[in-house]
């Protein structure tokens, strides 16, 4: 029988096992081809879809490549000033304590201009979720050095590579916020392979479900590629990321709530 089974026979609604969540709009994503932002956007929406909490979720978009996330995420969304998403999210959660609130921020937004808001929201233990995309570069403005740019890594504002003597060191803000008593769950993930995506999705789900517990902030870093900024093909950039970013930003949970 299988010899006669055509592709047309398989592609029927009853056989559908995966398609884009309805919580992503039909607007084409503005991200570059192969950019992990698209996958991360989708995972957040898949989790909210699967949890059935569209009507109870408010998302905060940053300034950076994901500034237009509100065009793609089919939920109520707020676009925040550069770096201030954790402050905005703090207020949203405080005035709507039973809603699910997340910020979606890049490394420049979260770990440079918004360091203060990030650390204080974490330290206050706001019951929100922060999704932090770390690609070691300012993507939207055209590939400038970020707080997370690796030593010797080239960017348009460090064209000869990041000289740590002059430009300082990469900021491991995720390890930093894990030290704060207000964070409940801190993890570092990636979205460049199917296995990584499955893990990252579980982490995002946990980070959003944690809001019900009201035990503090859940923080999910996603180390991602910026193939345009790094000037590589998408697959080469993912390989480069594994070889160079992962040693500096190791995958896995950094702070896991202890079972009582």
């Amino acid at each position: 029988m299988q010899d006669t089974l055509t592709t047309k026979d398989i592609i029927k609604p009853e056989n559908l096992v995966y398609s884009k969540t309805k919580l992503l709009t039909d607007t084409p994503l503005s991200y570059c081809p192969g950019c992990g932002h698209g996958t991360a956007n989708r995972l957040v929406m898949e989790v909210i879809d699967e949890m059935g909490i569209q009507s109870q979720t408010i998302g905060i978009a940053p300034v950076g490549c994901s500034v237009l996330a509100y065009n793609f995420m089919n939920i109520d969304m707020i676009q925040a000033a550069h770096g201030r998403a954790p402050a905005v999210a703090t207020a949203v959660k405080r005035v709507f304590p039973d809603k699910y609130v997340f910020t979606y921020q890049g490394d420049g937004d979260l770990a440079a201009i918004g360091t203060s808001e990030t650390i204080h929201a974490c330290n206050r233990g706001e019951n929100i979720t922060i999704v932090f995309i770390n690609n070691g570069i300012y993507g939207m403005t055209g590939g400038q050095m970020a707080p997370t740019t690796l030593p010797n890594m080239k960017a348009s504002t460090c064209p000869y590579g990041r000289d740590v003597e002059i430009m300082g060191h990469p900021l491991k803000i995720t390890e930093l916020v894990a030290q704060l008593p207000g964070t409940y769950y801190v993890t570092r993930q990636a979205v460049h392979t199917p296995a990584a995506v499955r893990k990252a999705k579980k982490a995002i789900r946990k980070a959003i479900e944690n809001q019900k517990l009201k035990k503090g902030l859940s923080f999910v870093e996603i180390v991602s590629n910026c193939n345009s900024g790094w000037k590589m093909t998408p697959n080469d950039s993912n390989k480069w990321m594994e070889e160079n970013m992962f040693p500096e930003y190791p995958m896995g949970d950094i702070k896991v709530p202890s079972e009582i």
Binding site: I58, I78, V88, A91, V95, S116, H120
Partner: peptide, 26 residues
Amino acid sequence: MVVLQAESEIAAINMVYGGACCGKRV
């Protein structure tokens, strides 16, 4: 009514922005 001491004036006004987005009197 929520009362919160923010970490800076910048954070405070952006908290106002967040609360105002929710249709609340902030």
